[in-house]
Amino acid sequence: MTQVTMTVNGEAVSGDVEGRTLLVEFLREGQGMTGTHVGCDTSQCGACVVHVDGKAVKACAVLALELEGAEVTTIEGMANADGSLGTIQQAFQDHHGLQCGFCTPGMVMSAAALLKDNPSPSEAEIREYLEGNICRCTGYHNIVKAIMAASGQDVSAIAAE
């Protein structure tokens, strides 16, 4: 076992991990932060997306030991300081952007990464950016709508399908 220390949602955390410990295992099993989901464990679905040093990555495909000193943000870090839902989370609720909710942590983290680089994305840009986030329930439409809304854009033009 080796000790690793990183910042998760603004707080320094450390733990003893094996070489093979994945970031998602460090978060879920080591830190008890089960908001980050494992959908496929084969790097395909995006349910496990978190931010590492501000960039979206799949937590099921990064070793914890790679991240000594890194800044990690997870879905638990997306709420407002008073515990209410953050803007993107609220938009997902308002626009019915989730059904079972399994893909949602990854969707929200990908959306946050997109909006950081591109504060006012088009519908096509959102769909392209979500290429690696798979949802079995919603058909994506309301997810795209929620992200448009979270970026302050008018969503009335996006017809319900």
Partner: peptide, 9 residues
């Protein structure tokens, strides 16, 4: 290549 998260790593 792939998707944004794959391209970041």
């Amino acid at each position: 290549i792939g998707d944004p998260a794959v391209r970041n790593r």
